[in-house]
């Protein structure tokens, strides 16, 4: 176990801690800027994984109508249902747990990043002594930059935000991230889970970043969450489109009577997407195209359909 800890420290924590301190010294001793730069670099480095994960999720989402159809068709034969489902995934080149792979690779990086930020801005002498062990001796610039000046605007990045501003930003950015990544639900159960996660995650993380339910996360970490979420929203927007955000903000522009229309519009979109997908499936079967082609065709049709709907309004 100790050996695993040492590997974890040398491969992930130490390079991250030293990079953070190096960025700090390069960013004119501003740890807030260092965290922002570091988050962007890490997110950029993980871009291939994020893209792969998002594409897998999108592809899975596109297959939902077909999956529902199989479930309905083989309602009484569980084994057949499972076989047909697997066959469908295989035919479309989708790995049902494929989107989890990149997520599992990202998780240790996020945990390490969390630990690195916490370790770099220790507020207690005990932890400053611990930090000294993580710094590379061959980088005198890094050793000499300690202790980190942890003030950033009104924040002490080593301590939770005494105001509610950062917790709100954490919650809001996470809400946007959830909004961007949540795929349309195909049944009421999933829709209910999606709705709950859409609100629950931002609220919980907002609370964790505050002092309301015990000692909150240091604001350096909260800043990391905000930047990471915003970068995630941008990446997601470029991969899967900006529709969720456009819908969210157009919803805010509507009059009181209009949300119903907007909601109806959303429901219509889902039904429409389902129909389009079915059509595209028939088309794919006829033409013998690949799953990626099929998904792209679905995307194009969805876009055309949305344009038509917007024009008709």
């Amino acid at each position: 176990m100790e050996f695993i800890g040492q590997i974890w420290n040398s491969i992930l924590i130490q390079p991250m801690v030293n990079s953070l301190v190096l960025l700090y010294s390069m960013a004119n001793s501003n740890f807030g800027i260092a965290i922002v730069l570091f988050t962007i670099i890490i997110r950029a480095g993980m871009m291939p994984l994020t893209v792969k994960q998002s594409r897998q999720m999108k592809a899975m989402s596109a297959l939902q109508p077909k999956l529902k159809e199989i479930q309905a068709k083989y309602k009484s034969d569980r084994q057949r249902q499972s076989q047909e489902t697997m066959k469908m995934y295989k035919d479309n080149g989708v790995n049902p747990i494929g989107c989890l792979g990149p997520m599992f690779i990202q998780m240790p990086i996020f945990i390490a990043l969390y630990q690195a930020i916490i370790k770099t801005v220790p507020s207690e002498p005990e932890n400053l002594v611990v930090l000294s062990k993580y710094l590379y001796g061959w980088l005198p610039m890094v050793r000499q930059s300690i202790p980190i000046e942890s003030t950033f605007f009104w924040l002490d990045l080593a301590k939770p935000d005494p105001t509610v501003i950062l917790p709100i930003l954490v919650g809001a950015s996470m809400f946007l991230m959830q909004k961007m990544t949540t795929m349309p639900a195909m049944d009421e159960r999933q829709a209910s889970t999606n709705r709950m996660m859409l609100w629950m995650m931002p609220i919980m993380f907002g609370l964790f970043a505050s002092d309301l339910i015990g000692p909150g996360f240091p604001s350096g970490l909260a800043l990391y969450w905000v930047i990471s979420n915003l970068v995630g929203v941008v990446i997601q927007g470029f991969i899967t489109g900006w529709d969720p955000l456009i819908k969210l903000f157009s919803f805010l522009k509507f009059n009181k009577s209009e949300p119903a229309v907007a909601l109806a519009g959303s429901a219509a979109t889902l039904i429409e997407e389902e129909e389009i997908y079915e059509n595209s499936e028939d088309e794919r079967e006829n033409s013998g195209g690949s799953s990626r082609d099929s998904v792209n065709r679905v995307r194009r049709k969805q876009k055309r359909s949305r344009n038509r709907r917007n024009k008709s309004r």
Binding site: I111, Y114, Q115, I118, K119, P122, S123, E124, P125, E126, N127, V130, M201, M204, F205, F208, F217
Partner: peptide, 18 residues
């Protein structure tokens, strides 16, 4: 989620001021 966050805190190896 809360347990997860506590786990995060716990595995940093950091202590409070003692």
């Amino acid at each position: 989620l809360f347990m997860f966050s506590l786990g995060f805190m716990g595995c940093t190896g950091l202590t409070t001021a003692e």
